[in-house]
Amino acid sequence: MTPVMANLLNIVGILVFVVFGAAMLTWVERRVLGIWQDRHGPNRVGPFGTLQIVADMIKLLVKEDWVPDFSDKFIFVIAPTIAMFVVVAAFAVIPMAPGVGIVDLNVGLLFFLAMTSLGVYAVMFGAYASDNKYALIGGIRAAAQMVSYEVFMGLSLMGVVMLAGSFDLRQVVLSQQDGWYIFPQFIGAFIFMMAGIAESHRTPFDLPEAEHELTAGFHTEYSGMKFAMFFIGEYVSVLLTSAMITVLFLGGWLGPDFAPPLFWFLLKTLILVLFMILIRGSLPRPRYDQLMSFGWKCMLPLALANLVVTAALILR
């Protein structure tokens, strides 16, 4: 296998895995929520309802893909593209297993942070271009929320960087052979998880699209495949956050030798995904001001304290 072929296989394989995985995640989420809510969930299309996503896809594809007359059409169209692009692009730096991964940047972590912070543009553009009051309020909320949580998302990772001594994610994984960083960096992992949920604006931090008050928030005017891109983008984001936590805190592909490394990576990611679904299925949505004060008054000091303590212990 030539390096070119290997790279191509990596790129195509990971892209397919990410997009297909995110799509399946919609089914997984609905089934799992069903189980937890003492009902069945989608179980009619295909075995155990696994083809539900195919049915949904057909529905979304044949739906009228309406661009409102009053919208800013160009921005309206590119907003979901950005949403999809940034999360998929961030997957480029995730090392899934030895030899599996698209690129090993020595600033992989910074690349990840850069990509996720671009995600706010998708939401803001979509909200602005819709020319809709609900969308606008959703967009403003999203911007404030994502910008705020980004701050300590970065800070929470600095402890790991200090421990590993590298921004290269593969290096971070390899440096966990002695012990997962979740133990020394428990607070960092917790903050990163919270921030990740907020970044992907999932329940309980889904205020930009809170349907009780804002119809559908920033994507009120979206339909058809454009809506699907926002929708799938969110699930890719869930996968991304889970994968990042696996890489940074749970030792990535490291695990007993009876199973291939990729299996351990995927297993850990899946457990994290399920945990995020559990959070979604059980915790209520806070008020907007509670969300902001939780971020700035609780999470940020906690992240800074974590950073200082970690630094102090390393420099000891």
Partner: peptide, 12 residues
């Protein structure tokens, strides 16, 4: 509480 419902029967 929610997780524990993994092992209860569906009401529907």
């Amino acid at each position: 509480g929610v997780l524990s419902h993994t092992f209860t029967r569906a009401d529907t």
